[in-house]
Amino acid sequence: MKTPRQHTDTTPLIEITSLTKSFGTNAVLRGFSLRLLPGENLVILGRSGSGKSVLIKCLIRLIEPDGGDIRIMGQAVTQLDRASLDRLRTEVGFLFQGSALYDSMTVRENLRFPLRRHPERAQGVAEDSLIQTALESVGLAHAIDLLPAELSGGMKRRVALARTLILKPRIILYDEPTTGLDPITANEIIQLMLKLQQELGTASLIITHDMDCARVIANRVIILHDGINYAEGTYSDLARSRDPHVRAFFKDTNSPYHD
């Protein structure tokens, strides 16, 4: 079983300070802060509806935050114009909870789509070769001409990951990467995420409430509660906490992936 790789670089790739976001009178984020270091796997744990997905969507401005500061690779995200934001987004991959594959396109076309928009990211390598390599890295080279409707949930997640990787991002944001998958497929996805971190050195921000995923993959864990970073530490640090809100996450963890 793979373990997350440790990194020593302390210049953050993502730095969020006092992020706030409300929907009407419902304050979802109330001053959330984090730092994601190069090559790190940072897991955000939180209950359903706690604002985890809102947080990562604010990061790349799929949702506009109300206040606070977001910096990705030193750039203030909320102050970027459209062209600069699009350029920055190519450095940040995003794996959606439901995979979000373009269902009118084949797997090949799904992977070709971002490449055609940003041919400079191919760095002179042939498009077909990049697509083949990305699919091989997720073990789905044989599915290249299938439509998303012909894929299982786990395969869709892998193709979505390949599509995310094709632009060679430095950061990957995972929104509930194992939700809706059976335990075996979920473990395969987790191992794949670890493999990618080790081989490509990408930093990952992983939103989940899957404790097995958090335990296996995290270098560091933040618990999002009440709109703030309620607790922070390694998985084992938090597992030893006596705080009732933190304990609530760890009390029933009995995983088939334990070392």
Partner: peptide, 21 residues
């Protein structure tokens, strides 16, 4: 229906994050 379905399944968001308008 097509764009609605793309919105619901986050395909429009996926396009946005891949740096496409």
């Amino acid at each position: 229906a097509e764009l609605g379905s793309m919105r619901v399944t986050e395909q429009i968001d996926a396009m946005e994050v891949s740096g496409t308008n």
